[in-house]
Computed example of a mutant assay.
Amino acid sequence: MSAEAPLSPAATPDPKPLIIAGREFRSRLMTGTGKYANFDLMRRSIAASGSEIVTVAVRRVQTNAPGHEGLGEALDWKTLWMLPNTAGCKTAEEAIRVARLGREMAKLLGQEDNNFVKLEVIPDAKYLLPDPIGTLQAAEQLVKEGFAVLPYINADPLLAKRLEEAGCATVMPLGSPIGSGQGIRNAANIQIIIENASVPVVVDAGIGTPSEAAQAMEMGADALLINTAIAQAQDPVLMGYAMGLATQAGRIAYLSGRIPVKGYASASSPLTGTVTG
């Protein structure tokens, strides 16, 4: 049963807020707009998650694809920051063209200074894995045109560094294939990306549960992007709320510093001063 009361994770003080391309955000959870049963459910789920950055598939809005008719007007862009994405683009050329359309769409909806784009170049329709060469080519051109580029990539540390050097605002390695709900299958490589990145690392795709969201944040990821796990949950509003809390919990845990893993037991209570028979 969906929660009727408005839900939103409580704001948690963070000594190092999320900053992307000079813009500061309180929430470290980004959400999507696809796969919801209706716009009302989408609005309530996003609000419950506490998300401030919301992705919009430019091509699907432009073509009025099923479920996307009127999507641009369905959300309050005075309180949310639009992240136009190039979903559906198979080549760098397509992605560059759609990114330009996305920037114009954001302006028409009142975000005059929005140069953000989530860059997706995905030629493979079955596994939806991003093309590393096309992504780098498109990113280099879009950075030249003044975009804040957030590229969706495989968990490839070398590619992540190349994109950072090209001027991307973030890198967005996948946890596992889009919509698969497989969780974090590339933890070792994501950890390398996090350790070597000087821009925010956003784990994108594959997260299915709040525990997986918390896991990604505990690793040191700066943010998450979650869509399917919320939109297709039995109760998307409650799942949005849970994902928002998990993102916060994982971040706080990372900042707190976990205890080291040991190969032996360590008593919680002191051994001195105990009663002996």
Score class of each variant (00 low, 15 high):
Ala65Leu: 02
Ala48Met: 05
Glu69Ser: 12
Ser51Asn: 02
Gly67Gln: 00
Gly50Ser: 04
Pro66Gln: 06
Leu71Met: 08
Ser8His: 11
Ser27Ile: 04
Thr31Val: 12
Arg60Thr: 11
Ile20Arg: 04
Arg26Ala: 06
Val61Leu: 11
Arg59Asn: 14
Leu71Ser: 09
Asn64Ala: 14
Glu69Pro: 07
Val61Gln: 02
Val56Asp: 05
Phe25Ala: 10
Phe39Pro: 08
Ser51Lys: 01
Pro17Phe: 01
Ala21Phe: 00
Met30Asp: 03
Pro13Asp: 03
Ile19Lys: 14
Ala74Asn: 06
Ser49Gln: 03
Ser45Pro: 08
Val58Trp: 02
Ala48Pro: 08
Arg59Trp: 11
Gly72Cys: 09
His68Met: 12
Ser27Tyr: 00
Glu69Met: 07
Met42Leu: 06
Ile53Cys: 01
Leu75Asp: 01
Ala57Gln: 02
Thr63Ser: 14
Thr33Ala: 08
Glu24Ile: 13
Arg59His: 15
Glu24Gln: 14
Phe39Arg: 08
Ile19Leu: 08
Ala48Phe: 01
Ile20Pro: 07
Ser51Trp: 00
Arg26Ile: 10
Ala10Ile: 14
Gly50Glu: 05
Val54Trp: 03
Gly67Asn: 04
Leu71Cys: 11
Asp14Leu: 02
Arg44Ser: 10
Thr12Ile: 12
Pro9Ala: 10
Ser51Gly: 13
Ser8Asp: 12
Glu24Trp: 09
Glu69Lys: 13
Ile20Ser: 00
Val54Asp: 05
Arg28His: 01
Glu52His: 03
Leu18Thr: 07
Arg23Ser: 02
Thr33Cys: 04
Arg44Asn: 12
Ala74Lys: 03
Leu29Val: 08
Ser45His: 08
Thr12Glu: 10
Ser8Gln: 11
Gly72Tyr: 03
Glu24Thr: 15
Ser45Arg: 02
Pro9Phe: 09
Thr55Leu: 03
Ala57Thr: 10
Thr55Lys: 07
Asp14Ile: 14
Ser27Arg: 05
Lys16Phe: 13
Gly50His: 08
Ile53Asp: 05
Gly72His: 00
Ala65Phe: 09
Thr33Arg: 01
Gly34Gln: 04
Tyr36Phe: 04
Arg59Leu: 15
Glu73His: 14
Glu52Pro: 03
Thr31Cys: 05
Lys16Asp: 13
Val61Glu: 03
Thr63Met: 12
Thr63Phe: 08
Asn64His: 13
Pro9Cys: 12
Gly22Met: 01
Pro66Thr: 07
Thr63Ala: 13
Phe25Tyr: 08
Tyr36Val: 08
Ala11Pro: 11
Phe39Asp: 00
Ala57Ser: 12
Lys35His: 14
Pro17Cys: 13
Ser27Glu: 00
Asp76Gly: 06
Gly67Tyr: 05
